[in-house]
């Protein structure tokens, strides 16, 4: 029976916990492998007959691994997490949302309500595809950045693009809803 179990260090970020560099493009097979290795170590099933204190540590450690996996396995959440780690925030006040972006989105929304025709659907989907492509480019640029200033610049671009993506994502969902697609 296990008599001792240390909590995972709170100083480790999700990347460090999984033994990865802080990169925005991750190999999903490597992620899965690391997740399974950590799960086998941490899962409460291994400590089911141990003292309550040890079981509680196991629950928390395992939750930590699962939470990290959830963040790391989704490119958008992963990027949001890196922005948070790097302390990149949205500017305060009105500039928080560029007015032209809001205008564009609002107009598309109104048009979509009036006439969800195939042309409009096409346009929304292609706008979303564009933003995804741009994001991929920025991710690579971030990972390849040679110094802190250029990395920070990439992250600022990512912040803006993720916000645009969020608005377009809702629109895309709406469009797919009208098309009856999942």
């Amino acid at each position: 029976m296990v008599t001792e179990l240390a909590p995972l260090s709170p100083d480790l970020d999700h990347f460090a916990l999984f033994g990865f560099d802080r990169k925005l493009v991750l190999d999903s097979a490597a992620l899965d492998a690391a997740f399974l290795r950590l799960s086998r170590e941490c899962h409460p099933d291994r400590y089911a007959v141990a003292e309550p204190e040890i079981r509680a540590v196991a629950e928390r450690n395992s939750a930590r691994v699962n939470d990290a996996k959830r963040v790391l396995s989704d490119p958008v959440r992963r990027a949001e997490y890196v922005l948070e780690l790097a302390g990149v925030e949205r500017p305060d006040g009105e500039a928080k949302c560029p007015p032209d972006l809001l205008m564009e989105v609002f107009e598309l929304r109104e048009k979509l309500m009036e006439d969800p025709g195939p042309e409009l659907v096409e346009r929304v989907l292609s706008l979303f595809a564009d933003v995804e492509e741009k994001l991929d480019g920025l991710f690579s640029r971030h990972d390849a950045a040679a110094d802190d200033p250029s990395r920070l610049e990439a992250l600022r671009g990512i912040r803006e693009t993720l916000d645009r993506r969020k608005f377009l994502m809702n629109l895309t969902r709406e469009v797919e809803g009208t098309l009856g697609k999942p």
Partner: peptide, 8 residues
């Protein structure tokens, strides 16, 4: 459908 244990 979050894997458990999970926390927030």
């Amino acid at each position: 459908n979050s894997t458990i244990p999970a926390s927030a």
